[in-house]
Amino acid sequence: MADWEMTDNTLLQIRNVSKCYSGLGESRAVLRDVSLDLQAGKSIALTGESGSGKSTLLHLVGALDYYDSGEIKIAGTNLTNLNDSARSELRRNTVSLVFQQFNLVPSLNVAQNISLHARLANRVDQTWITSLTSRLGLTELSDRYPEQLSGGQQQRVAIGRALAVRPKLLLADEPTGNLDEVTSTAVMDLMLNLVHESGAALFLVTHSVQVANQLDRRVHLSAGKIA
């Protein structure tokens, strides 16, 4: 057992996590003994150069990938020995993700995309979803399909989908990486407000110092280590 204890308010605890990728006969360490905490309702920005391990850490926290050593706990659940079903349940009920490339379902319209995660988790709060849709400025676009939307609109749908389920932890991987500066600022402002309103914690990976500065805390990752 690691020499750390969760405080009542700690939502995410990462302790001594390491991760290597193997390929072409050699092993490359991507993360080395990374440790950090995130309290409920707070936000953290993870910055770093390309290849520093930011996205890998986010994927590990999202139970999308497996670490080699160390431990990650989310809301008291240790990810180390979770099987696929338990990891899926965690993603369904506790964690939400926003990707750089939106990952909307092309065959579902805006309204269906927004409510998808909530329906999967059997936690549809229609009042909250309607309010969310309105706040995101998507009410008029409810019947449109992703291919009919601009990049900024698509990312707003993705944010709406992630928050509709009222997650405890929102993971965002370069959510504004594909957007221009103006759109990026607008989307970030909106996301931070809504995250704050929903009471979720935010774990955000970004290149942008400007975006990182908007969050409660900033952590810099360099060559797989927290600098």
Binding site: G62, L64, D84, S85, S88, E89, L90, R91, R92, N93, S96, L97, F99, N103, L104, V105, P106, S107, L116, H117, L120, A121
Partner: peptide
Amino acid sequence: RGLFRTLRAMGVPLHL
């Protein structure tokens, strides 16, 4: 493929 990844990311287990 994208949809499957998205559904998996949103917590749909692989076997389901």
